[in-house]
Design a protein around this nucleic acid. Structure first.
Lengths: 167, 167
DNA sequence: ATACGTGCAAAGTATTTGCAAACGG
DNA sequence: CCGTTTGCAAATACTTTGCACGTAT
């Protein structure tokens, strides 16, 4: 069964309009902060702000979008700190880097419950949506076992025209 | 049935070492040159060189790799012309732009026979290989029909450690 | 002859890095 | 206090663009 997971995130050319619908609990935020503390990292304001914002998203954000959203929330953070935080969280396995093209990286939390989705990109308006499908996951897992690689993860991007842009 | 399509292309940090194994015919090259001519485009040396190189590849190349390979073949072409050619070929549907991460675009010919593959990326050594799998394609087509999007294409990237790097 | 294609250099983005100051533990 | 984290600015990497010149038709 296919599930369209979120209402959509517009990623069109700056200034980015981001419609984020926070339906997530703070589970990932708490677990991530706690885990970093345990590993001996200090609790700085920039990283905390990024983690707390990211944990409420249902789909991927760019560094610039995070910068803008934090600024709008009067929580200004240097863009370098955002990149450094995202790099660290990716390296330590809390965040996944997503590449849907256009030369910008996007980032989203990796949730402990194993919930896993892929992306649908409208080439016309730049909208990005998430979807999940069990049969696709099974086909991927099967292929992964046959490659000879030790596969750490996978990304699927469907490109096309969204419902609105088809018209 | 899973098919590993090519022996591998090393895309590690510059200077790029590229092992390209030309097993393709010149069918795509000829069709592309002919089609551009028909559309009224002139036959310049830079674009021809890029098309003739790209048509012999079995997997994706970056603009820089194309630049280096042409230079090595004593057929130096300005990097701007390479980017312009790739942009044009992508826009006109002869080439697909591929994004396996690391902030660089890769490009490969779209063959008329509909042959279609995806990519396997070693996060350790940067190697990129192509693979194809019918069951995966079927699962993708099925999902695509359920999204509400008019899906123009899809990309699948499997990330992990290759046979050599697992050791 | 004319306008398309090309190469160079400059400009534009996205991202990373050096460094001094701020700050958490 | 000491060392991590942060912010700024500079550096870097990739890609695009402006412009003068060459060249295919």
């Amino acid at each position: 069964m296919l599930t369209i997971l979120i209402p959509a995130t517009i990623i069109e050319s700056r200034p980015a309009i981001v419609i984020a619908v926070p339906t997530r609990s703070t589970q990932w935020i708490d677990a991530t902060l706690e885990s970093l503390r345990t590993k001996g990292h200090r609790d700085g304001s920039a990283r905390r702000a990024v983690i707390e914002l990211l944990g409420l998203q249902d789909c991927c954000l760019t560094a610039q979008e995070i910068f803008d959203m934090l600024r709008d929330a009067n929580e200004t953070v240097g863009i370098a700190s955002i990149y450094r935080t995202l790099e660290q969280l990716t390296r330590e396995g809390f965040v996944q880097r997503i590449d849907v093209g256009a030369g910008v990286s996007r980032f989203e939390p990796i949730h402990a419950d194993g919930e896993h989705h892929h992306h649908l990109v409208c080439e016309d308006c730049g909208k990005v949506e998430a979807f999940a499908d069990d049969q696709l996951e099974r086909a991927l897992r099967k292929v992964e076992g046959q490659t000879g690689y030790s596969v750490a993860g996978h990304d699927v991007v469907l490109r096309g025209a969204c419902r609105d842009c088809v018209k």
